[in-house]
Design a protein around this nucleic acid. Structure first.
Length: 388
DNA sequence: TCTTAATTTCCTGGTT
DNA sequence: TAACCAGGAAATTAAG
């Protein structure tokens, strides 16, 4: 969607905005709206209760601390999944909280759901809401998105660590030097002890069958014996041994080698999980893009500390380096439910970003990339967080 | 149904 | 020699 600049137009007053919001609340939650607070599909436990009247928002000093309010319940969700009502509440909070002159604001600018909101650029928000309010809304949105992405990345990392044995969850680990030093050494023994006899053969089309990554906790990795000649660890850490899963060639029943087909492994439409996925809304947001996934690992070093996956080389310039290239690829694969992801493939996708200027080339340096002008959310001033 | 964006996969050749 | 980089080509998937 696109918002034309200058959609700000006179409106009666801030109280009018409040009145409309309050009425909207009453209408939606007393009569059974077609669009109640949308629970996050991954967080189905959210319960729907009445929203406070807009006036109540005035008494909230900080959204992030209002644990007893309904606001906190949807506020903790990914803004992507906010309803129009949620967006209105969010905007009105900043309007009221800053005593912003709502007469300069068009209500039509506020009628969007979270998905639309998240597509707006900083400039679009500034155009719509003006410098003062626009900047605040943009910063709030960036923080919320980062917070949600952190949660999701944390879950992924937890799943990844927890997939094989009772490795402590990141959320429960107290970060200290001992933990930092042990994490990956512990991994190598995990993989050495893994029972490779449980490996299922590849299906005859050359891809793993869906059953191979049917783990509900985010996709099960298939393994290749690290000592086998096919094993090709591209891991930059020589002590680190990761499971290798991509196989270029497969053996047929007659023992001849066949090439794997190109492109993504096809999904099986009869698979119940695929059915679930295909049932989701047509307007469901796209998954996080690769560069955003990378960015989120980088801007949350508190997670990275445990994994040592990546690090900033020059935060102000957006230059970063893969430390555990294959591990990052595995995590990305887990997120995309693709157990055959490798750094080789991931790096190809990264190179496509050069053309779009999402990434810039860093010549002569292995595993080093740089965020380009079309990437956002990694700068210190954008995130409000401070990297290493 | 078609188009398009964003990968994913495979490949060849070059560099470190 | 292994690991990585570069980029073409083709395939797949999801979203619009």
């Amino acid at each position: 969607m696109s918002f034309s600049p200058g959609c700000r137009e006179p409106m009666s007053s801030a109280s009018e905005l409040c009145r409309i919001l309050t009425n909207a609340n009453m209408t939606m939650y007393q009569t059974g709206s077609s669009e109640p607070l949308q629970p996050h599909p991954l967080q189905p436990s959210l319960t729907t209760v009445s929203l406070p009247a807009t006036g109540d928002l005035l008494q909230l000093s900080d959204l992030s601390t209002c644990s007893s309010s309904i606001l906190a319940q949807w506020y903790d969700q990914n803004p992507q999944y906010w309803s129009k009502q949620n967006v209105l509440e969010w905007i009105s909070f900043y309007v009221e909280g800053n005593k912003f002159d709502a007469s300069t604001l068009s209500l039509s600018c506020c009628f969007m759901d979270g998905s639309m909101l998240c597509q707006l650029t900083r400039d679009q928000l500034l155009n719509m809401f003006g410098m003062s309010l626009g900047v605040q809304l943009y910063q709030s949105l960036m923080e919320l998105k980062a917070k949600y992405d952190l949660n999701e990345t944390c879950k992924l990392l937890d799943n990844f660590l927890h997939e094989f044995l009772d490795f402590p969850l990141l959320s429960t680990v107290e970060v200290n030097e001992v933990v930092k030093e042990t994490s990956y050494n512990d991994f190598s023994h995990v993989f050495k002890n893994f029972n490779f006899d449980n490996m299922k053969p590849l299906s005859d089309h050359g891809y793993e069958s869906d059953s191979m990554h049917s783990s509900s906790s985010g996709g099960m990795l298939s393994f290749q014996n690290p000592s086998s000649p096919e094993s090709r660890s591209s891991e930059s850490d020589p002590e680190f041994s990761y499971p290798q899963i991509a196989k270029t060639h497969i053996k047929t029943e007659r023992g001849e080698m066949m090439k794997r087909g190109r492109g993504r492994p096809p999904k099986h439409s009869h698979d119940p999980r695929h059915y679930q996925a295909s049932k989701k809304s047509k307007h469901a947001p796209r998954g996080t893009h690769l560069w955003e996934f990378i960015r989120d690992i980088l801007i949350h070093p508190e997670l990275n500390q445990n994994q040592g996956l990546m690090k900033w080389e020059d935060r102000s310039e957006g230059i970063f380096k893969f430390l555990k290239s294959e591990a990052v690829a595995q995590l990305w694969g887990q997120k995309k439910k693709n157990s055959s992801m490798t750094y080789e493939k991931l790096s190809r996708a990264m190179r496509y970003y050069y053309k779009r200027e999402i990434l810039d080339r860093v010549d002569g340096r292995r595993l080093v990339y740089k965020f380009g002008k079309n990437s956002t959310g990694w700068k210190v001033e954008e995130t409000g967080l401070h990297g290493m």
